[in-house]
Amino acid sequence: MTRVVVKRLLVGVLVMWGAASLIFVIVRAAPGDPATLLLGPDAAPDQIRELTAKLGLDRPLPVQYVSYLGDVVRLRFGDSYLFNRPAMAEVFERMPATAELMLASTAIAVIAGLTLGLIAGGRPGKVVDRVVSAGTIALQSFPTFWSGIMLILIFALALRLLPSAGSGTPAHLVLPAITLALPFTATVARLTRTSVAETMREQYINTARSKGLTERQVLLGHALRNSLIPVVTIIGLHMGGLMGGAVVVENVFAWPGVGTLVVDAVANRDYTVVQAATFLVAGIVMIFNLAADLVYSQLDPRIRLESAA
């Protein structure tokens, strides 16, 4: 077990190096440079040259790359060109908003997904099951940015119940969190439905029923418990997808998280912020994937961690 974890971590270091390098290559290959952008069209060429040198962007690319890697190893990402302060500080400042959004979405998705899955799986093949199954396919198919806009249309503009954009109060969180939760809810519901339907066919369920337990007690006592394992795993595995979804949803709702930061930083050629933010996201995704694997193997002894190919 320990050996597997150590090996996984070593692979993780390799992956982080690759991820950092990949982003370095992409942002440097982009047309347009930070100095010209920062100084605007009225700057003199020597001003642009000076700022380029100050940002360290006049050095040959291999030199920039080596010093960048040296910094990354020490978890330093340099100063944001735009905000004139450490890029990672900028990212960390936006992280709580993204975390808040993701946590709220996960909570909604798990609760709604488990409920729907229990309802559908408890009566496999019945009308309820059909409706829920069809509904979840639809939920998974809505593009998040569009469902977000539709929620704005209904709840912010037509009913005037909730704010359409921005942050600050808990009410601001509701629409973005629901939007981000929709596809994930469908995943959890489908997973739960399958697991519950399987459990309901098991012998011991019949035994439980014959002991006089009500259908509700059977569902909550046995079926729900069994379906928690895959749900926990899927949370870990979906962290990447959820993070990607958050990037889009944040932009729909002007939510001041890492997603809006990255999109702005790419447009502003704020290389250091792009590098810092993507590095952090990659790190988080990796840790969650690893954690999901470990939790899964702990919860379900049938699964053993294989060392990766």
Partner: peptide, 25 residues
């Protein structure tokens, strides 16, 4: 444990539902 995880999830959900629109100003 599973029950604690469920507890956390429920607590978060309650925190969410417990909040109405607050006025600014």
């Amino acid at each position: 444990t599973r029950s604690r995880l469920l507890g956390l999830v429920l607590a978060t959900a309650l925190a969410l539902t417990g909040c109405g629109a607050t006025s600014g100003g």
